[in-house]
């Protein structure tokens, strides 16, 4: 019965993903047909205008897929290791931390290469995540959802003011930053994707390898210890994978919020908390949802487009509020 459910979830996920990819490539300021897509992909007929349109939309779509999958999986990992249902890169302030470091990079070190963006974002995200988590763990009861959310919001507030201090004096920094900050998956190139892919794949594979340990950790710390699990190590590796996944995406796309919160929740409600399945299906649905958000942004933002970061916040914030509403009072 359960097996059936999981198969259905996967099948639907893959169908949705394929459909969203097709829509993302065909829909836009210039609509193209399926035959053009095939031409575009296989490089036939390269002088036709439609094929060029397709070629331009492919990196964006692929990147959306990777970014959505990375953010959802990062959400799964963070929720599991903090044992906290509302952990998400944006709630934890990780996005803002990455932003601050990138701004400092733009303003003082004149960073330009994408790899530098990614490295500096990783450092910023890691420091912020550790800081927020430790801040929330002070006092009784460890990092409860309310303490974690408030610590994240407070640290984000603080970092946002710092960001403005660096951005304001220099209008060129402001322009670069303003467009990066909103969170868009447009404007990525094939080179960016090739750069991103090794990190993403490595992090996802390692998380999958950890998934049995993560399952055990869900039981209780004592049981996990009794079963011979090194909790600290598992947590540490999972945290690093999570931070890599969200910071590399953030570095290239800007902060995209709430994907990591929404998707794992929906998936967990359906397939349960077996991490292997959770991680894989969150990845599939996360990719699909981000691509759909991007397409919606193109529809709603006409004649220009609405960045996917805005779209995911507009969809995700109500989901967040819904989760808070549903949660039992004591567990907050």
């Amino acid at each position: 019965m359960k097996q059936n459910k999981i198969t259905i979830v996967f099948t639907i996920g893959i169908i949705v993903l394929i459909l969203s990819v097709i829509v993302s490539i065909t829909y836009g300021a210039k609509a193209v047909g399926l035959s053009d897509i095939i031409d575009g992909i296989f490089g036939r007929n390269t002088d036709s205008f439609n094929a060029n349109v397709v070629a331009a939309r492919i990196p964006r779509t692929i990147f959306g897929l990777i970014a959505g999958a990375s953010l959802s999986i990062a959400g799964v990992l963070m929720q599991s290791i903090t044992r906290n249902p509302i952990a998400d890169p944006s709630i934890l302030g990780v996005n803002t931390g990455a932003s601050l470091f990138i701004v400092i990079g733009i303003a003082f070190f004149n960073i330009q290469s994408k790899i530098a963006y990614m490295g500096i974002a990783f450092v910023g995200a890691l420091i912020t995540a550790l800081f927020v988590y430790n801040l929330a763990s002070l006092g009784n009861g460890g990092a409860t959802p309310i303490k974690l959310a408030i610590s994240g919001a407070a640290v984000s507030n603080a970092l946002t003011s710092l960001i403005s201090i660096f951005v304001m004096p220099d209008s060129s920094v402001m322009t670069t930053f303003r467009f990066w900050q909103i969170g868009s998956i447009g404007g990525t190139t094939n080179t960016d994707i090739l750069l991103l892919l090794p990190f993403t794949i490595a992090a996802i594979v390692i998380s999958l390898m950890l998934s049995n340990n993560l399952d055990t950790m869900l039981l209780s710390e004592e049981t996990a210890k009794a079963l011979g699990l090194n909790i600290g190590l598992t947590r540490g590796i999972a945290a690093i994978c999570g931070v890599i996944l969200c910071s590399t995406t953030t570095a290239l796309a800007g902060p995209i919020s709430f994907i990591g919160l929404m998707i794992p929740h929906l998936i967990r409600a359906i397939v349960g908390s077996n991490h292997k399945i959770l991680i894989l299906s969150s990845g599939i649905y996360g990719g699909a949802i981000l691509i759909i958000s991007d397409v919606l942004g193109r529809i709603l933002g006409r004649p220009g487009e609405l960045e996917s970061g805005i779209m995911t916040a507009l969809i995700g914030a109500p989901v967040f509020i819904y989760l808070i509403r549903k949660a039992k009072l004591q567990s907050l």
Binding site: I86, I146, A153, G316, I321
Partner: peptide, 10 residues
């Protein structure tokens, strides 16, 4: 407070 944080994001 949590609801407010969500609303703030929206």
């Amino acid at each position: 407070i949590l609801t407010g944080i969500g609303a703030q994001a929206f």
